[in-house]
Amino acid sequence: MKGAEVIQKLNEYLTGEELIVSSNGNVSRQAYNFLPQPQVYLRGSMGLPVSIGLGLAISQPKKKVIVITGDGNFLMGLSSVTTVGFAKQNNLRILIIDNESYATTGCQETVSSALNYGEMVKGMGIESVMSIDLTKEKEMTSDLLDQFVNKEELQVLHIRVEIDDINLENIPWHPIEIKENFQNR
């Protein structure tokens, strides 16, 4: 399974009420194209989607906040995950789409393959962690995304995927428009 297919599959489990922060590059383009709008689409600030999601989750405790991030982006902001483990914000979820590459910039390798995400994230104080490899399994079990979206606890879902073969256009909204559309939703 590819990253874009995971994001399309996630859409089936959303109510439209969730607040979604997506990391810069392919991931935010896919979130823009395949998930309910408007959301927080990051254009820059690599390494910060988890911390932006944490701030949003603290600000809006009654809403579910989902951070969708590629592996390169997640790893750049790795220490912010420890702050999430410290803050224990139950309405926050982090979905890591791991293709072991900086896919937006030409599929250069990341260091992701060295890591055991389940153990690493648990060691950072986040108890609810699932890690699956969809380069080996063809399908996700049906309750995985359901639980990720709906269970009332801080969660991290790490999904190892194949590199996408689609190329999406840049998000047409200027970042100021992204912010305003999100504020007015």
Binding site: G53, A57, I58, F182
Partner: peptide, 8 residues
């Protein structure tokens, strides 16, 4: 990042 998310 935290303060920007909080503002959003």
């Amino acid at each position: 990042g935290i303060i920007c998310g909080y503002f959003l």
